[in-house]
Design a protein around this nucleic acid. Sequence first.
DNA 1: CGAGGTACCTGACAGC
DNA 2: TGCTGTCAGGTACCTC
Length: 280
Amino acid sequence: MIEMPELPEVETIVRGLRDVLCGKTIAGVEIREEMIIGYPEDPEEFREGLLERKITAMGRRGKYLILELNSNLQLIIHLRMTGKLLLKMREEEIESHTHVILRFKEGVDLRFNNVRKFGRMYLIDRDSPEKAGGFAGLGPEPLSSEFSPEVFRKILKRSGRAIKALLLDQKKIAGLGNIYADEALYRASIHPARPADELSREEMDKLYQSIDQVLKAGIKFSGTSFSDYVNALGEAGSFQERLMVYGRDGEKCPRCSCQINKDRIASRSTHYCPECQELP
DNA sequence: CGAGGTACCTGACAGC
DNA sequence: TGCTGTCAGGTACCTC
């Protein structure tokens, strides 16, 4: 199981759940913590809306999971900081911090588990994405063809904000979080506090490539797990072993051997090498 | 529009 | 041991 998911972790979760859940019908919904339900406002409406619905497909957009249901409905899930989706047999003991349980006719449970209760579930009509939090306002999907180097440069040129803040802004680019933003900036040798519109064209293109590479590598290694969890398929993510700067403050930079810094930039803890990622 | 702060909530960990 | 303060991978909302 994976905690605190960014794009690669959510993608890993979707891949692990898709084959198991597609075609299954929701026979019961247990809401143990109402604040998790983001839409409809009435949790009972959420519960009744899900009953007898079949999951027809699963996908992802940014850090949101999408469960396609019949009757033109979508169940949109955002795990925020500590959310997990656990696939369990109905008779298995319910873990603490389990807030919503979808029970399938086939005897399987999908359990939404979330220590900090920041995560949300939205049941919406497919044509009303604006009801699912920031879902409708997401920027381009970084691993899709719509996200070209040209599109990326335009986004950066329109803003004088710190590049790190821009990378974390889901309205600009969907799916990057604090880990992968730091890792992408390190790979591109760009200081996180640099104003976005002051990067050279070469730096912008290098950062574009770094984002692509770090996200694909994250997916390849099934995401980053900081605890000894496994995903729905029983696989543990291992990308934490390949992080270059995140969580490695005080250690030596793999490139130049000077000490990795941890500072507060764009109101977030930010890891970088002061030597390779110099301010001009 | 953006920056910066607060809020949401709980647990882990460091320091005393 | 236990108290206190700080921190955590995310986002929404507020004010300036």
